[in-house]
Simulated scan of single mutants.
Amino acid sequence: MSIPGQDTVEYGDILVLGPDEGKDYWQPVPANGSISVRIDPEILKIQSPFSLGTQTLPPASYVREHYHPIHDEVLHFIRGKGKARIDGVEHIVEPGVTIFVGRNRRHMFINDSDGELHWLWFIQPNGLEIFFRDIGIEKYPGQPAPEPFPRPKNVLDIEKSTSFGPPLKDPYIPTFEAKK
């Protein structure tokens, strides 16, 4: 196929992934759950490098408070209910909620519900997908979730080399009520 009058057009890549395709990883505590990296510059030629994927957070889990010095992030919540904490302000997240988090904004995600919290994430420039790969355990379709496992001992080096700022001196740590 060609574009009329433009014989020298350079075409970008096309990728269509099925539900069980992508790069999937189990995540360590406190997030637990899993990540599916769907788009990244390692698998496609992307004009402006970014990565995109999904994250599933089980009940009584959270993505620790952090920030990205040079990255902008978008999150769109698909399933479940929980909280996003951005610069100390809590926001309810549920299906249909979209959040933009600009660089250097402290943020975290908390699943304080009884069901899984699931969202789509987009970050530019890329780097988050490398972090997920390097701290996680490869996940295969149909595989049961592993027992909770710790973050790797070199997690601070991994964070520094991917998309995270230095550790926060006063991170917020959520508590979860025991279910009766």
Results as ranks from 00 to 15, higher is better:
residue 6 Q to F: 13
residue 159 E to M: 15
residue 119 W to L: 14
residue 152 P to Q: 09
residue 39 I to L: 11
residue 29 V to G: 14
residue 139 K to C: 00
residue 32 N to F: 00
residue 2 S to T: 15
residue 45 K to I: 01
residue 133 R to T: 03
residue 6 Q to Y: 13
residue 12 G to M: 11
residue 50 F to Y: 13
residue 162 T to E: 01
residue 147 E to N: 04
residue 53 G to M: 10
residue 81 K to Y: 02
residue 113 S to T: 11
residue 46 I to F: 00
residue 69 P to C: 08
residue 177 E to T: 11
residue 41 P to K: 06
residue 129 E to V: 02
residue 38 R to G: 12
residue 29 V to F: 00
residue 3 I to L: 10
residue 15 L to Y: 00
residue 107 H to L: 07
residue 133 R to H: 02
residue 156 L to D: 15
residue 91 H to G: 09
residue 151 R to Y: 12
residue 4 P to W: 07
residue 13 D to W: 07
residue 47 Q to P: 05
residue 173 I to T: 15
residue 31 A to Q: 11
residue 151 R to W: 10
residue 32 N to T: 12
residue 69 P to Y: 03
residue 83 K to I: 12
residue 80 G to E: 05
residue 88 G to Q: 01
residue 126 N to K: 10
residue 76 H to Q: 13
residue 8 T to G: 04
residue 65 E to K: 04
residue 108 M to R: 08
residue 21 E to I: 08
residue 75 L to D: 13
residue 41 P to N: 08
residue 17 L to V: 02
residue 6 Q to W: 11
residue 34 S to E: 12
residue 145 A to Y: 03
residue 120 L to F: 11
residue 32 N to Y: 03
residue 124 Q to K: 12
residue 138 E to V: 09
residue 150 P to Q: 10
residue 9 V to Y: 11
residue 125 P to Q: 06
residue 139 K to T: 03
residue 127 G to K: 03
residue 78 I to G: 05
residue 146 P to C: 02
residue 40 D to H: 09
residue 44 L to I: 08
residue 17 L to D: 03
residue 36 S to A: 12
residue 153 K to R: 14
residue 83 K to S: 13
residue 109 F to V: 15
residue 82 G to C: 05
residue 11 Y to T: 09
residue 7 D to S: 15
residue 110 I to W: 04
residue 23 K to M: 11
residue 74 V to F: 00
residue 40 D to F: 00
residue 5 G to R: 10
residue 16 V to S: 13
residue 43 I to R: 13
residue 178 A to C: 06
residue 34 S to T: 09
residue 32 N to M: 12
residue 133 R to C: 02
residue 38 R to D: 15
residue 101 V to K: 01
residue 106 R to G: 12
residue 124 Q to Y: 04
residue 56 T to V: 13
residue 32 N to Q: 14
residue 144 P to D: 01
residue 143 Q to P: 09
residue 46 I to M: 09
residue 137 I to E: 05
residue 87 D to T: 02
residue 144 P to C: 07
residue 103 R to K: 15
residue 42 E to D: 14
residue 158 I to L: 01
residue 110 I to T: 08
residue 37 V to M: 02
residue 149 F to T: 02
residue 127 G to A: 09
residue 26 W to V: 04
residue 24 D to H: 06
residue 89 V to H: 08
residue 137 I to D: 06
residue 78 I to W: 00
residue 85 R to I: 11
residue 62 Y to E: 05
residue 130 I to A: 13
residue 21 E to R: 02
residue 150 P to I: 00
residue 162 T to F: 01
residue 25 Y to C: 04
residue 146 P to R: 03
